[in-house]
């Protein structure tokens, strides 16, 4: 069964989070690299205080695809790992929860570096 309403929520929440990033770009002149760092830390903090979980449940990929969702995944990964294996989980949980995206970015990044050349504009 296709859940239309879910997709509307994904679109609206995902778009809104990106728009916050754009507002920062326009009005604060913060560089994109810094905005990415701000977003991931914000994600970790919101997830830690329990605000991001409900948003992710409400909007699915709309909340998990932006970089704040990456922070949320790191945070929840750490939380579950600590619950399962104690203090060591603080170190093992984050990266194992996000391993797919990171490994893919490293692998495809290197592969693209081999295969393609930068284009002039």
């Amino acid at each position: 069964m296709f859940d239309w309403l879910m997709y509307v929520k994904v679109f609206l929440v995902g778009g809104a989070i990106c728009t916050v990033g754009e507002l920062l770009v326009i009005f604060t002149k913060i560089t994109p690299a810094r905005i990415l760092v701000c977003f991931i830390i914000t994600g970790v903090v919101l997830s830690a205080v329990g605000l991001y979980g409900p948003l992710a449940a409400f909007a699915g990929a709309g909340a998990t695809t932006p970089l704040t969702g990456f922070g949320h995944a790191l945070c929840q990964g750490v939380k579950h790992a600590v619950e399962e294996s104690g203090l060591i989980g603080a170190f093992t949980g984050g990266l194992s929860a996000t391993a797919g995206g990171i490994a893919a970015a490293v692998f495809f990044g290197a592969l693209a570096g081999f295969l393609f050349k930068p284009h002039s504009k």
Partner: peptide, 10 residues
């Protein structure tokens, strides 16, 4: 930034 980095110019 690298040429293929997708950013907007001021």
């Amino acid at each position: 930034y690298p040429l293929e980095f997708g950013t907007q110019r001021s």
